[in-house]
């Protein structure tokens, strides 16, 4: 029994290639996808289009950064789509009342606050984060509808939307913020006490407790980060669209989870990083962009993504089976 448990904890006997594959299979997927679309469409491998891919990826990407933090803890946050919509609505709706930047700040604060609330409820009650954030998903979406009066809000001063047009070469402000945040949080994960503790908490919570890590505070911080990042995505969306639809970001939480899992971060916790998440987000975005360039109908995109996810899961399963032997 012990020997078996031990075996699954150690990958020492694996060949280097398998070990590498286990951690980085997403980049192979991405490379294949890019290669295929480059052949299939002359428009794909242009600087302009790749910039577009990044911009399109950025919204789910920013949500995915927070989700990765939470998932490394072995938790999940289903409320990010609704939080995004709320920050989006607040940033636009409050502009006329308190000015642009205070409104943006309010949106950010709301996101962080809701994340803090989710995290606090989870650690205080001991409830499954799935249940708590499922409740929050419904409630926050309700809040959005109540706040917007079920209508789309419009910005009054259209100079607000010009922020979205800022770009650095082919990279839009949105894409830059996504990449910057991803790198920043990878740095957090790799180099700071909080980041390293995240793995310990997600993988071996007893060892973390024995070592005196404050697990409750740790998890609350990560849920707060997740909420705040959802708000950032919502604010960037408001700049890009200039409107706040109450249905904005609907089921994006599911796409976010798909992107993170596709990257290789495990739902069980203790495993993953931002590189994987960037890989997962980009792969999804490349698939979506490439299929659109090829003028494939919407449904192909949805079906390919579903099939792709199951394929990735089967691959992961296959490799871990080999690992157990």
């Amino acid at each position: 029994m012990t020997a078996m448990l031990g075996a699954s904890r150690s990958s020492a006997h694996l060949p280097r290639v398998t070990n590498w594959l286990l951690r980085n299979h997403i980049w192979i997927f991405l490379a294949i996808a890019i290669a295929l679309f480059s052949f299939a469409s002359p428009f794909f491998l242009t600087l302009n289009n790749l910039g577009n891919v990044l911009t399109q990826a950025a919204f789910i990407g920013i949500l995915a950064i927070g989700m990765t933090m939470v998932m490394i803890n072995g938790e999940i946050d289903l409320s990010v789509g609704a939080t995004l919509a709320l920050a989006n609505a607040l940033a636009i709706g409050l502009q006329g009342v308190i000015g642009v930047w205070p409104a943006v700040f309010c949106g950010l604060l709301a996101g962080a606050g809701l994340g803090f609330l989710n995290g606090s409820i989870i650690v205080l009650s001991g409830m499954h984060s799935f249940v708590v954030t499922l409740g929050a998903l419904i409630g926050i979406r309700g809040l959005v509808f109540v706040y917007t009066g079920e209508n789309a809000l419009m910005v009054e001063d259209f100079s607000y939307t010009e922020y979205a047009d800022i770009s650095w070469g082919p990279l839009s402000l949105t894409a830059l913020i996504f990449l910057g945040l991803a790198l920043f949080f990878q740095w957090i994960l790799a180099w700071t006490r909080h980041g390293r503790e995240a793995y310990s908490v997600g993988d071996n919570i007893n060892a973390a407790f024995d070592a005196g890590i404050n697990i409750k505070r740790h998890k609350i911080i990560n849920f707060t980060i997740c909420g705040a990042l959802a708000a950032v995505a919502g604010i960037l969306l408001s700049m890009r669209l200039g409107t706040a639809e109450p249905n904005a970001g609907k089921i994006w939480e599911l796409w976010t989870i798909i992107a993170v899992v596709l990257g290789g971060t495990r739902l069980q916790g203790g495993f993953g990083n931002m590189w994987m998440t960037i890989g997962g987000v980009l792969t999804l975005a490349v698939l979506r962009n490439g299929l659109r360039l090829l003028n494939t109908p919407n449904y192909v995109e949805l079906m390919v993504m579903g099939a792709f996810l199951i394929l990735a899961l089967l691959l992961d399963r296959f490799i871990s089976l080999r690992m157990a032997k």
């Binding site: 310990s200 071996n204 007893n206 060892a207 070592a211 890590i213 203790g270």
Partner: peptide, 18 residues
């Protein structure tokens, strides 16, 4: 049953929490 986190480095595991 070892109380280690496989994703952390050897050094980080030795000094876990400190």
């Amino acid at each position: 049953e070892l109380s280690l986190s496989p994703e952390l480095s050897v050094a980080e595991n030795i000094y876990l929490g400190a």
